[in-house]
Amino acid sequence: MSQGRQLTFNIFRYDPQEPNDKPKMVRYQLTETPGMTVFIALNKLREEQDTSLQFDFVCRAGICGSCAMVINGFPTLACRTLTAKYPKGEITLMPLPGFELIGDLSVNTGKFMRELAERLKLWLHPKSNDISVHRLEDPMDPDEAARLYELERCVECGVCVSACATKQMRETFVGAVGMMKIARFEMDSRDARTAEDFYHVIGNQDGVFGCMTLLGCQDNCPKDLPHMQQIAYLRRKMAMTLIR
């Protein structure tokens, strides 16, 4: 194999726990290898150039949602971003805005998602608690199951939250991830909650009526989820509760 080209990484560095540290951009050089992803590159940089570099990866296969960061202006999953995508060989990495910064490229999306789930009660509220696991299960429309799975594909990577200007301005805004999940349970025939119940949770300025439809969520979602359609659906549904 021929010698790979030189890549230049501009990486945001800041350790908020270090008393005298200030946010800065640091340049690193690295030789590209075939099939190199940002995951591979960052690990190489850490092993060979700066062992203190912080970032998060878990599955490294685009499944777990740990590694979202802003790459050349677009928030996305770093593990499945090939460096070959950047013809100039210049790659700027920033942590996702809108989340608590742990250090460098590592942000606390987990804490955010858990708090959101608690606040919006993002779990199935079954219609009956009297369920026997020994008996035949209740049937469900196969198409409904398939539709629900489509909405379940969210990996809580936080990209939609960071790409949402509304969320940046209004800290309490639930973001696309929250609304998508509400829409998922709203469409689930097994869930006991009514449109009125959901209105109490997201029928406000922090929910569907605060959303300005800027669609940073839809345009950046690594799982190509239908945010625009789902949030519009939810908004219509919530507005319909005004009429009886």
């Binding site: 779990w123 199935l124 429309d141 409904e144 199951a145 398939a146």
Partner: peptide, 13 residues
């Protein structure tokens, strides 16, 4: 499997 269906898993049908 049946318990998980009641916890929200949209098993393919």
């Amino acid at each position: 499997v049946r318990e998980l269906a009641t916890w929200g898993v949209p098993w393919s049908r």
